[in-house]
Design a protein around this nucleic acid. Structure first.
Lengths: 185, 185
DNA sequence: TGTCCTATAGTCCACGTGGAGTATTCAAGA
DNA sequence: TCTTGAATACTCCACGTGGACTATAGGACA
């Protein structure tokens, strides 16, 4: 409520809905599920995120266990306030598109500072990399589909595929525009 | 070279290619040209950005003038190293797509934490806002086209339109999938 | 002449990020 | 048995961000 949740905080609360975990476990699960495709996950940020959630009462410590002689780890559970905050944040994120200042539009807006041939080469390069990325994403869809995972757990993949495809064809059109001279450089 | 340029630093260098300015002028010009659609521009960040560019030798002070009795303002010009850094950064930004962790995929991936009806309402809401945003962008294109501004100065608008359109139709398909039951919730 | 408003031109500090570093434990091999 | 290496489990700090705050000048109006 007070402050908006960071993306990483959303991911953490999402995990804790399924059950209590300690920070290092969260880290492992996030990597194992490849959630780090969708949120940036760094140890430093993760521990700080959990601290903040704790400070704000969105998670609570449910005991400190220890395995072997290793340092004791505090396990955290989501609180009712945490569930509310998660729902509110998700609602806000879905309902309202916010400008996230992607880098490509900026680069395009400043691209007139580069010579024509350079721009063409760079654009072709990007398209090749996009194609590789798209292959990865499609392979990911095939894999989860084969596992029989319900669609609501991987729709974000199809979204990203749609966006990358658009970017790729937009770039193709742009390249043609420059080559044909329709877009002066 | 040493560190990567921030988006705001790229915008600043882009301005200085046209001629020397002092920080407050940069701020004015960025707002006047609506560059703040594409990069986040805050006074605090801007002054710090210029300081860093200066520290790194990408811009140099070209005298301190004063208008009236107001505090003296240092005017900055781009250096050869600055031009190189700008070109390098633009090349990198165009050639390599990087994951920028947009918020919607995360929200979608976690949306199973919300009830079906809520998700549908939120998605319809977003589509309405996207439509409004698209109207704005299309009006912007009409305006610059009417002014006869060369296409290379506003291609970023057409890119953003293409992406938003894709998002909108993807959401429409997603909504239908939930409504029809193809996507279980 | 005094006052208020707006434009000008910044500064400051709390916050979140993230790379690099640290320390310990356990297992496997020489 | 000793060592090496990887996994475990963090901690620390330098950096960039951005909202809020400050201060002055010039013009408009009464």
């Amino acid at each position: 409520m007070a402050g908006t949740l960071t993306p990483l905080a959303v991911a953490v609360l999402g995990l804790l809905v399924e059950g209590p975990l300690h920070p290092y476990e969260m880290h492992q699960v996030l990597l194992h599920r490849a959630t780090d495709r969708i949120v940036k996950v760094r140890p430093g940020s993760l521990y700080h995120s959990v601290d903040r959630l704790h400070r704000d009462g969105l998670v609570r410590a449910v005991g400190t266990e220890r395995a072997g002689n290793r340092p004791e780890r505090t396990t955290y559970a989501i609180t009712p306030a945490g569930r509310d905050a998660l729902a509110d944040q998700l609602a806000a994120m879905i309902a309202a598109p916010v400008n996230e200042y992607p880098r490509l539009p900026l680069a395009l807006a400043e691209a007139h500072n580069l010579p024509r041939e350079t721009v063409l080469t760079l654009l072709r390069d990007r398209r090749a990399r996009l194609a590789a990325e798209l292959d990865d994403l499609r392979a990911g869809v095939d894999r989860v589909r084969a596992k029989g995972l319900p669609a609501r757990y991987w729709i974000d993949l199809t979204y990203q595929i749609a966006v990358y495809e658009t970017e790729s064809t937009w770039i193709a059109t742009f390249i043609e525009g420059i080559e044909s001279g329709d877009i002066a450089w």
